[in-house]
Amino acid sequence: MNDNNQKDKEGLSRRQFLTYALGGTGAFMAAAITMPMIPFTVDPLRRVGAGNFVEAAKVSDFEVGVPKKVEFTVHKKDGWVESDVKLSAWVLKKQDGTFLAMSPICTHLGCQVNGGKEGDYFFHCPCHDSFFTKDGVPKPGVPATRPLDTYAIDENALKEGKLALGAISQRKA
C-alpha cells in the first residue's frame, strides 16, 4: 500500500467515512432486502470449554522440523444454534519430540498466513507482508509483533498416538 494512500485515509474524519460507507451501499439496501452476514467465531474451542480437545491428526503424520497444516471440525452450540466450524492449525514436530500447534491467523490484523516458504521464514502473511519462522516467531520489523497463537495439546492423547487440540492462547512478543 503506498504512503499517500495511507496518509489520505489517516486524515479522513469519522464523519466523512461514515458518509461514504453508509450513504453508499447502505442506502441501496433500504430499497432491497438485507440480511446480516454471519460473524466468524474465532475460537470455538474456547467456547466448548477448557479441557475440551478435538482430534486433529495422528502423531505419525508429522516429520520433525517441517510444519504441516491440519484441518479439523468443531461442533459448536450457541443457544439453540448448532453448527460445525472448520478450523486449521500448523503443527510443528520438534527435535525433542514435542509438538507446537499454531493458529494460521496472523497476529497483526487477522489474515490467514501461508506456509511453505524457503529460508528462515516459513510463514508469510499476504496482507501486509509479515513473515514468521517455523515456530511462528515474527521477523523483526514486520507489522506483526506477536508470535502466532498456539492451540493447547492433549498430552494424554499424544501417548495414544493422536494429536488432539484445545483452546487457543496467545504467546508474548
Binding site: 460507507a21 453508499g24 451501499t25 447502505g26 441501496f28 439496501m29 432491497a32 432486502i33 438485507t34 452476514m37 454471519i38 466468524f40 496472523c106 497483526h108 490484523l109 487477522g110 489474515c111 490467514q112 502473511c125 499476504p126 496482507c127 501486509h128
Partner: peptide
Amino acid sequence: TGVEQQLTGRVFLLPEVI
C-alpha cells in the same frame, strides 16, 4: 464471508447489494 475471513486485515466486506 469465506474470502473475508482469510483476508480480514486488508479488506472491508461491504453489505451485499441485491
